[in-house]
């Protein structure tokens, strides 16, 4: 591992794969095919994009002009806020993989993660300049800011669709169907997790109360 980090080629490969994100977002169908099949993407670059997205989301709260985003700081929990991105991302990857493996999906979990992460690229790419822009425009000139904000989301959504299409080698309609199905899969996972934790805590409470009872009797 350490030897790998010392080699210069590692960094060159990392930067190349990261730069490839810019190609992917402008040529989604071709780009996502090569991303996995030609190994032109890397998990390291995907992690970088996810972290950039998280930083952008937090920075947006702090640095966007209050004309466009009024933050009630008393109501913000930074960990929950970060989890609000990471948790759905993780659930989506697991849920989508779990479903598509059953229905001829060609993608592996790492590929699904990589594709989804690369599809998030427009978010930091557009939002960071918009944070700066928001501080030099007035409220009346803010239409462009609002437009760019929704553009970044729509663009990312379209990229996710094409990513899933190319990774699983699905048709468009099948992709859309399994995206919706993935959402339900995510809900099921959340439900089972809640059930699991609730059961565990009940079980622990049972043994704790037995132990207490024994201690009282002694």
């Amino acid at each position: 591992m350490l030897a790998l980090l010392k080699k210069k080629e590692t960094y060159i490969h990392y930067l190349e794969t990261l730069k490839y994100a810019l190609y992917v977002i402008t040529h989604p169908l071709d780009g996502f095919w090569d991303l996995t099949h030609e190994k032109r993407g890397s998990i390291a670059a995907a992690n970088t994009i996810v972290i950039l997205t998280l930083i952008t989301r937090v920075a947006k709260l702090q640095f966007t002009s209050f004309l466009f985003l009024q933050v009630y700081w008393e109501g913000i929990n930074i960990f929950l806020y970060i989890a609000s991105v990471l948790l759905p991302l993780a659930l989506f990857c697991v849920g989508n993989w779990g479903l598509t493996t059953l229905f001829d999906g060609k993608g592996r979990m790492s590929q699904i993660y990589m594709g989804t992460a690369y599809a998030l690229t427009p978010y930091p790419l557009i939002q960071i300049p918009m944070i700066i822009l928001s501080n030099v425009v007035t409220k009346e000139e803010g239409a462009f800011y609002v437009f760019a904000g929704s553009l970044s989301i729509i663009w990312a959504a379209m990229l996710i669709i094409s990513a899933m299409m190319q990774i699983h080698e699905y048709t468009l309609s099948k992709t859309l169907f399994f995206l919706v199905a993935s959402l339900f899969a995510m809900l099921v996972i959340v439900f089972i997790l809640l059930l699991f934790f609730s059961m565990i805590s009940q079980g622990i409470a049972y043994f704790v109360s037995i132990a207490k009872e024994i201690m009282f009797r002694m």
Partner: peptide, 14 residues
Amino acid sequence: WDTTHYSKAFKQYR
């Protein structure tokens, strides 16, 4: 949090 007046002042300031 007065966005309207802030915008007016900011326009002149800018």
